[in-house]
Design a protein around this nucleic acid. Sequence first.
DNA 1: TATAATAAATGTATTATATACATTTATAAA
DNA 2: TTTATAAATGTATATAATACATTTATTATA
Lengths: 233, 233
Amino acid sequence: MSTQQLDYYAAQDKIYIATDCIIFGFDNHSIKLLVFKRRVAPFEGEWSLIGSFVKNNESVNDAAKRVLTDITGLQNVFMKQLKVYGEVDRDPGARCITVGQYALIRIEDQDIELVEKHGAVWHDLDEMPNLVLDHNQLVSDALVQLRLKASYQPIGFELLPEKFTIPSLQRLYESIYQKKFDDRNFRKKIIALDVLTKLDEKDKSTSKKGAFLYKFNRKKYDKLVEKGINFKL
Amino acid sequence: MSTQQLDYYAAQDKIYIATDCIIFGFDNHSIKLLVFKRRVAPFEGEWSLIGSFVKNNESVNDAAKRVLTDITGLQNVFMKQLKVYGEVDRDPGARCITVGQYALIRIEDQDIELVEKHGAVWHDLDEMPNLVLDHNQLVSDALVQLRLKASYQPIGFELLPEKFTIPSLQRLYESIYQKKFDDRNFRKKIIALDVLTKLDEKDKSTSKKGAFLYKFNRKKYDKLVEKGINFKL
DNA sequence: TATAATAAATGTATTATATACATTTATAAA
DNA sequence: TTTATAAATGTATATAATACATTTATTATA
């Protein structure tokens, strides 16, 4: 680096940069969020999103992936930047900004032992504990973002197991939007998207008749996401 | 801070944090972007977005506002975070992440002297020069975001002068989406939004007949934005 | 083995929205 | 007075959204 460049870059004091993950899952009944109870200071014993400082040799996005893998054992998970939280006094311990990133995971795929080892717990949205710092705000922003996103991408699929029924898909959307949909119209609209493959199997865990299982067609799905559909419910 | 806390925060090396503004304007014909030619190292003589390191006593968002005001003289401008660019090697000079933020301004309101003093120049999208670092990427991401945003918010109003004609509003949208719209349907849809107030004045600069000027009704507009319309064109 | 109970699956008519498309109008300049 | 030009307007058609009730497949029970 030239002297001029050194001057240029030296102009800033140290600001810490972290990333925090808002991890959404769905257990066939409701949308849930993974948070953990801190075991060390600062904020020992308090509930917090799962995050980390960004290391020097990793990108901001990679830092979030590392955190997610450390906690859940999962890789190649849907994750997207939400927003940077950069208020001067958001962290009383130091000047620290954080990049909120929300992830959608298939709960069933998680490594339960890992999750428990870290003291992480899934909470329903309506029984979230109070979180440290501005983490409540991150959660609330992520939820808005999730709803918005779900309205122009069939994002819900990221949260379901490989095989799923239409009623469970409907419960997922009802849980995201916190309202009921007409089952006939819901089914019609989902099938009209033409990204589902009906299987010969049924899931009989919730009814005597049983509900047909579906997979989604990744190719058609990716094409749909790419061209940016308008998926209003 | 306790010793334990000091340890906690000390775990990270220095990472620089900057913010770069993607500034959109509209001159009644086409969408334009404000970029400047750097006068000092690094990248002296090259085109760049306008940005700054985040100072210790300002939030990330305030840093972007400061940059925008310094360059254009404008305050209270529409600005929104786009994304964090956090790749390890995005800046060869140092480990430096940047927060891209896009702004929509009314070109006519700018302080031209200030703009020129900084060597900033408005460029049409189709004649953008090559930019330093990953700034081309920031521009391209911002444009995608602008189009997406325009599809569920009547965001275009931020770019127009207080009084404007429907044909000029149409040119704005045509410039954003890079395609033509049917003038009868466009007018119908815009008026159906019920956020415009027709004035008794005409703008005769582009035709002998003249086009009626409109204002927008900020109250109705805000209500509309809040409830999140679906404004597809 | 017949019956009851239950969630899953299906269809249609109505309304609202989106699209395609051609003519008239107001005005300034010639 | 005529000409030229962008602005303004309406309607019919197609597509998508909504509202709404009955039948079906199956297990458990009588």
